[in-house]
Design a protein around this nucleic acid. Structure first.
Lengths: 148, 148
DNA sequence: TGCATCTAGTTCGATATCGCATTACTTAGT
DNA sequence: ACTAAGTAATGCGATATCGAACTAGATGCA
């Protein structure tokens, strides 16, 4: 691996550590024993719309179908989502957000406001948000090159 | 949450997605059923030196002691590390890398060379590595503010 | 020294993740 | 229409993660 290769490797290493540290911060504040993966799914449904199939969600999160089955089962048990039969494909289902699910998502967002504010205050505006465009580019590239 | 807060939140979201996508790419290539967490530990020991205590490693990775106990047990079973009693503290242990462990790490690194090269080629030098300094700064901040 | 307190690591039980195989349904080809 | 191949979801078993409780050894203080 050449010099630039080692830097790229280092980049993913930093990404992993930041993800771990940030995950620990947020996980500790999520309401009602909500797991990060559960929140991530709620967030996806709120931001990008519900009425998705389980397989589409598994693909979006790059997790096996079985993992998504499990996550959906947990959120359904908490009444945060509702699973309805797919109207035109008897094998499939459609995931709907419930009002309780939207509220749970709102509560989770609110619970993160404090640490987010502190991070913003400490690091200064822009330190973090200036990086978003490049990260989006990298994320989009990786997303479009999954079999890599 | 204000505008900058939402951007910071978005940043961590992008970090999480990139981590997930990159993790999937690397996990698929790790030799001998090696798990990402196992590789991460080997990488830490190779890069920053072995002869650490389990607790120090758990702290470095921000994982519970129990998780580290498990990870170390797996790597010890594979003879990638060796656990010796701590010379001055009877409660503790010292983790040593074995030759097999160093080789396993080398094999893992080699297995990632191809995707790393493709990513570098496709995105162009600097697209990724230019971000490292800022990410280091953010990582260091989060590392020093764990109880946040 | 003696004892209360603290600390490193493990055990145990619960949940999350994931690969493999199965079931139910759809689609394609004849 | 019938059958083969493909696809969506699930059941099951194995491993990873993690919190609570426990054990053994270290430390602080009278």
């Amino acid at each position: 691996m050449d010099e630039e290769g080692r830097r790229v490797f280092r980049f993913f290493n930093e990404i992993g550590i930041i993800n771990q540290l940030a995950g620990a911060i947020f996980a500790a504040r999520l309401p009602g024993g909500l797991h990060v993966s559960h929140f991530a799914l709620l967030n996806h449904l709120v931001r990008l719309g519900d009425e998705k199939t389980p397989l589409a969600l598994a693909s979006a999160f790059q997790v096996p179908k079985t993992t998504m089955t499990h996550t959906l089962a947990v959120l359904e048990k908490r009444a945060a989502i509702r699973l309805a039969p797919h109207p035109s494909d008897g094998r499939s289902k459609i995931v709907f957000l419930t009002d309780a699910g939207r509220k749970l998502h709102g509560d989770a967002i609110a619970s993160m406001a404090d640490p987010i504010r502190k991070i913003t205050d400490d690091l200064g505006d822009g330190t973090i948000s200036d990086l978003i465009p490049q990260l989006e580019k990298i994320r989009a590239y990786l997303d479009q090159n999954r079999g890599i």
